[in-house]
Amino acid sequence: MAAAVLASLLMMVVDHRENHLETVRSALSIIVAPLHQIASLPTSSGEWLSDSFRSRQHLLDDNKQLHEQNLKLKGQQQKFKALEVENMRLRDLLDSSFKIGDQILIAELIAIDLDPYKQQVIINRGGNSGVFEGQAVLDADAVLGQVVHVDPFSATVLMITDPSHALPVEVNRNGLRTIAMGTGRTNELELPHLPNNADIQVGDLLITSGLGGHFPPGYPVAEITQVINNPGQPFARILAKPSANLKRTHEVLLVRALTSPTQEPSASSVEQTAQ
């Protein structure tokens, strides 16, 4: 009994402080991986069924719709290419050129529930597919979180709304940089370090600033929903709603920046407004 208690206490301390137990956790999680598979079976078999029994007409409609969407996106992509080249030329003038371009890997969520008091999900790609710790994870709309733990065939993603998560962001409108902290609620981020006179409004889009090096710059994160100025407080209370669908995501994108983040000059705010 005493040995079990001591061992647990020791493990908790080591796990929290040192991260030496990652290998132990990995080894154990390989043993219990079948449990994850079985628990996600009802969801995945439901999907399989609905895929298998879909009518031909439905599939044709889907196909047509996707074709149209693809055409539209390609059209937008052409403009984007031109803008990218122009942007690089302008940055060259400022001596701060860097390459734009990220590698993207698609992963699926494994449908299981983890600790309800942590905002985490498990995805079906791991170290064998080149996933690494600290990698940025997106869904179709915006930033979702980052990889915190990698196993050979799966990885754990910490959502941006987890209370222990902080994300360097900037306001798309004027390049104001700050940090977005999770609150523990899936529809809310908090920006705790902005003074009362900061230039920020309801409806402003927050994008990743690329500072800190984990997240590639320029991906949308959240939209400001509430700005409360209390003159008695040193900082404004600013809340934002994540643009990613944190509750009902099925597929996620893992992003790897092709270049290391570079220091942006202060003039970058001008370019941000030009977007």
Binding site: A4, V5, A7, S8, L9, L10, M11, M12, D15, H16, L21, V24, R25, L28, S29, V32, L35, H36, I112, D113, L114, D115, K118, Q120, I122, H149, T156
Partner: peptide, 13 residues
């Protein structure tokens, strides 16, 4: 602890 990804040792204790 491993399957729900809590602190290793919490549920064990």
């Amino acid at each position: 602890d491993v399957i729900t990804n809590t602190l290793l040792g919490q549920h064990a204790l």
